[in-house]
């Protein structure tokens, strides 16, 4: 059943509503069911989660008798952003994932909405927040976990059938994310990054949906058949090399995203179309896996080109 989680009236004949769809067992609820919440669409240009929300529900409907708990699906935390191809919250130029846990008393409209979302998600037995990088970078399916939540969350992340679990160091600024707000108040949330902004990568979506069923089975929400999940690589910051553009230009990749690369192998060239020359050839500093690769060709000095997991 579709519920409205938070609502704000817009000036001219329109309401902004944050929806969730709640799926429950055919036999109804007895009160002690586990609850999983699937969340996406915080950034309006990240669409990979849209397919996951659809496909997850389609498969649940196909085997409704196996549903033993509550599945809450929140496909669009930033509906104005999704409908206007805007990453942040239109009208405010705010990154919605920097305003949690929100504020109902003295904040702006997005902070009011954020507070309603946090209140509704709180108490879930597990949440999965699906992101899709941005329009610049393509990511392999991965879960990112704050170092302080490592022990609690890594075992669950390994069930999600993803390729990689990145345990990153705590940064103060990340304390204003949805995941931090929930994890720090006792509601576990896994953050998935996969694919690229403004696109759907169906293969990655199917892979993650398989994993969500594994996670649901572990939580006692699903008792149907599930796959054996991939065994992801788990790493900390020290094993990740960041490759940034040494100068401005047009980046042309020579590696394939998600492939292995050897030290000193060519990642790609930064070219100068005006003069028809290569400005810089970027070589890999390590042997490893190209888990992040630039999709958007225009780069300024410093733009992220790739992240390589040393292997």
């Amino acid at each position: 059943m579709v519920h409205v989680v938070a609502e704000v009236e817009l000036p001219v004949d329109e309401k902004l509503k944050i929806y969730k769809n709640r799926l429950i067992p055919e036999a109804g609820l007895c009160g002690d069911e586990k609850r999983i919440s699937i969340v996406t669409g915080t950034h309006g240009d990240e669409l990979e989660g849209q397919y996951v929300c659809y496909e997850l529900q389609r498969r649940i409907q196909e085997g409704k008798e196996h549903l033993k708990g509550i599945v809450d699906i929140y496909p669009a935390l930033n509906p104005l952003g999704i409908d206007s191809i805007t990453r942040g919250v239109p009208g405010f130029d705010l990154d919605m994932n920097r305003i949690f846990p929100g504020n109902t008393e003295s904040g702006a409209m997005p902070e009011y909405i954020a507070a309603g979302i946090v209140e509704d998600l709180s108490g879930s037995d597990m949440c999965v927040d699906i992101h899709a990088s941005n329009i610049f970078l393509k990511e392999i399916p991965q879960v990112r976990i704050n170092e302080k939540d490592r022990r609690k969350l890594v075992p669950y992340a390994k069930l999600l059938n993803i390729d990689y679990v990145w345990v990153h160091s705590a940064a103060t600024v990340l304390e204003s994310t949805l995941a931090y707000s929930l994890n720090s108040t006792g509601t576990p949330m896994l953050v998935v990054e996969q694919g690229v902004g403004m696109r759907l990568t169906r293969e990655y979506g199917d892979q993650l949906v398989d994993g969500i069923f594994v996670l649901m089975k572990k939580l006692g929400i699903w008792d149907g058949k599930v796959i054996k999940p991939k065994k992801p690589i788990v790493s900390k910051d020290g094993m990740v090399s960041f490759i940034n553009a040494p100068e401005s230009g047009i980046f042309v990749p020579e590696v394939v995203h998600s492939n292995r690369i050897k030290k000193d192998e060519l990642i790609g060239n930064i070219i100068d179309p005006l003069n028809g020359r290569i400005l810089n050839s970027i070589l890999s500093p390590v042997n490893g896996l190209v888990f992040t690769l630039r999709e958007y060709p225009v780069v300024n000095k410093g733009s992220l080109i790739a992240r390589i997991l040393e292997m």
């Binding site: 990453r87 942040g88 920097r98 941005n134 610049f136 600024v173 960041f242 940034n244 225009v298 780069v299 300024n300 000095k301 410093g302 733009s303 992220l304």
Partner: peptide
């Protein structure tokens, strides 16, 4: 290019992204 806010990048990082 990336719609990031320079006033959310301090103290910055000289090997990082453009606005850092």
């Amino acid at each position: 290019i990336d719609n990031t806010d320079i006033n959310r990048m301090f103290p910055g990082y000289n090997q990082g992204e453009t606005t850092q």
